[in-house]
């Protein structure tokens, strides 16, 4: 086995790992607080990336939403556009919780699956209709010219990989600080542990969950904007990523942020390494191992590596 090649593949995988970890974290935040798997997380994130695309493209002909950009004026520089898109994504996430999820708090699981699947379908189709189903070129989030890399033992570690991990760690730090030192963070932790007791202690459960949705939407939006350059922006961009992220979250334990991080790394590595060494899988089918991993974890150890074991009352 070629060691340099292996190292190179690991380095390449780490970028994906960061993306999967962020999205898995977003899923975990929502699952932990509401027990809901947000199937629309990926499409919501893609939507935010398209917003950034519109802000960047300005009033270019043939771009729906060009009016928004021309109202702002000149096309924005990349960081500003992406920042704006993430803020819009956060607002949209909070609005979704308020309008579509909160009224269903007493509804059975099926109703929530329906709503998130409905959002997924509608957003996916909307993006295809507005911006075309073909891939769009998205500017890089990090410097990613051919020369932008560190050479380590003959393998190349790209700046974008390092950047993605730096962003992820920055996000984790901010998240940890928010949850640890702000009142809203305390409320969020309380609601996550036991929403009924939290409510009895005077915490307003609804707004707190909205806060969680906003955080999750923000994480997803950042993940989508970071990866839109390398995977090309298209309506189904995050669909496979969502499977990887779900696999990562399941592997780590659906209610464990630490698990999301570890799961993201493991799934990211396996997604690159398994197709490289198992010819049948190939690049296209690389989503299969993730699905298998998810099924196996759910059967053998539903709580995942770091999740809390659930005890069911009969």
């Amino acid at each position: 086995m070629d060691v340099v090649l292996l190292l190179q593949r690991i380095f390449d995988a780490l970028f994906n790992s960061a993306i999967y970890s962020s999205l898995a974290l977003a899923l975990v935040i929502i699952f932990r607080s509401t027990g809901l798997l947000n199937f629309a997380q990926g499409e919501m994130a893609t939507f935010s990336a398209y917003i950034a695309f519109v802000l960047l493209a300005g009033a270019a002909p043939g771009v729906t939403g060009g009016g928004l950009a021309s109202w702002i004026g000149a096309p924005l520089v990349t960081p500003l556009a992406i920042g704006g898109a993430v803020v819009i994504g956060i607002a949209a996430g909070a609005a979704t919780e308020r309008v579509l999820i909160r009224p269903l708090r007493n509804a059975p699981e099926l109703a929530l699956v329906n709503v998130t699947i409905g959002i997924l379908l509608a957003l996916n189709s909307l993006m295809g209709q507005w911006w075309g189903t073909g891939p769009r070129v998205f500017p890089p989030f990090f410097p990613s010219d051919p020369g932008d890399h560190f050479a380590i033992a003959g393998a190349r570690l790209r700046f974008s990989t390092v950047g993605a991990w730096l962003v992820l760690f920055a996000l984790l730090t901010v998240l940890a600080l928010l949850l640890r030192y702000t009142r809203a963070g305390l409320a969020f932790r309380a609601v996550s542990i036991d929403s009924e007791s939290a409510a009895l202690n005077g915490i307003r459960v609804g707004p707190t969950l909205m806060y969680g949705w906003a955080l999750a939407a923000g994480l997803g939006a950042i993940a989508a904007n970071m990866s839109a350059n390398s995977v090309l922006l298209e309506p189904t961009m995050m669909v496979r990523v969502l499977v990887y992220a779900f696999a990562a979250a399941t592997l780590g334990g659906l209610d464990s942020p630490k698990g999301a991080l570890v799961g993201g790394v493991v799934i990211g590595l396996s997604q690159t390494l398994i197709p490289a060494y198992v010819p049948f899988i190939g690049f296209e089918l690389s989503v299969l191992p993730a699905l298998v991993a998810m099924v196996v974890v759910l059967i053998v150890r539903p709580a995942g590596l770091f999740g809390t074991q659930r005890i069911e009352r009969v």
Partner: peptide, 25 residues
């Protein structure tokens, strides 16, 4: 038999996504 409710929804969604590349194989 083991995977229920929302988790089964997740797995079947994954199946639907995996199907196209699998069929090409």
């Amino acid at each position: 038999l083991r995977i229920k409710g929302i988790h089964l929804a997740l797995v079947t969604l994954g199946l639907a996504i995996v199907f196209q590349p699998l069929a090409k194989r």
